[in-house]
């Protein structure tokens, strides 16, 4: 998809900015992401209509001037629901990525620092094990065991982010450990923990940002799926997946109720994916190729 122009050499500060501006994926993805983040932020101070108020007289109205995206089966404004629902998606996805990073990154750094040891082996085999589980089934099981709630959805999604970040951190760190500047740091007497955090971590940050963006988008899809089957955020907290579940009964005569939440998910995930691709191109022109 991306055939932009970051072809040559190590960028200078200005070069990076210019490359960023010429990177179509980054611009488009960034814009979509900004709309989504903006909608969530604005909803804290202003929404067109209060989403906790039902207005049954006004229920299931297709889009018109006063309700730009129409109303749902309780007469709530769909645009307002989407704005508040964006907060739920962001909160769940950000925290799930946070869990993955906070636990996965140190594990990856530790495994790389002790590369080849039993510890490394245990960490990596543990990762394989978590990886082998069908994440959706386990998420269903966790939310079933501890009750459906946004918190349990976060934990369920977050657990599967841990091996992702541990792996990518370890593989990024392994190549760095052979570099001269790390050798210099060791000669200077720094311990491996200090080297990991002072020298390795800043150098794998790019990788982590790109992967974080991708996991963020996967988190949004997962949250939508869980709340669609009733295992995510509970009513009255609006969430996109829940809105889709509610709309299903009315789909034959009120398709707008299903259309807009789905589009919101699609565009947000698309935006984050494009941004992830764009960031990767920006950080490492050599890796530029269709993401899988």
């Amino acid at each position: 998809m991306s055939h932009s122009q970051t072809e040559t050499g190590a960028p200078t500060e200005q070069g990076t900015l210019a490359a960023a501006l010429r990177n179509r994926n980054l611009i488009l993805g960034g814009l979509l992401t900004l709309v989504f983040l903006g909608a969530a932020l604005i909803s804290f101070v202003w929404v067109p209509y209060d989403v906790t108020q039902m207005a049954i007289a006004n229920k299931i109205k297709p889009p018109y001037a006063e309700h730009l995206l129409g109303t749902d089966h309780y007469g709530r404004d769909i645009l307002s629901m989407l704005m508040v629902g964006a907060r739920t998606s962001i909160a769940v996805a950000v925290l799930a990525v946070g869990i993955g990073m906070v636990i996965g990154v140190p594990l990856g750094l530790w495994a790389a620092a002790k590369r080849g040891s039993l510890l490394d082996e245990v960490i990596m085999r543990g990762n394989d094990l978590v990886f082998a589980f069908p994440s959706l089934v386990i998420a269903v099981m966790i939310t079933a065991a501890f009750g459906p709630s946004a918190t349990n959805a976060i934990v369920a999604i977050g657990i599967f982010n841990i091996p992702v970040f541990a792996r990518i951190t370890r593989s990024g760190a392994l190549t760095l450990w052979n570099r001269d500047f790390i050798l210099a740091a060791r000669v200077a007497g720094k311990g491996s923990a200090r080297i990991s955090f002072e020298h390795i971590l800043p150098n794998v940050l790019n990788l982590l940002i790109v992967q974080g963006t991708i996991q963020f988008s996967l988190g949004i899809l997962a949250e939508a799926g869980l709340s669609y089957v009733g295992l995510g955020a509970q009513p009255p907290t609006p969430s996109w997946g829940r809105m889709l579940a509610d709309s299903q009964t009315f789909i034959s005569f009120a398709p707008h109720m299903a259309l807009f939440p789905g589009l919101a998910i699609l565009l947000t995930v698309l935006g984050l994916n494009l941004m992830g691709d764009g960031l990767r191109d920006l950080f490492d022109p050599k890796l530029r190729r269709g993401r899988t």
Partner: peptide, 8 residues
């Protein structure tokens, strides 16, 4: 296709 929620 990657971004579309399959249940939607």
């Amino acid at each position: 296709g990657v971004a579309i929620p399959n249940f939607w």
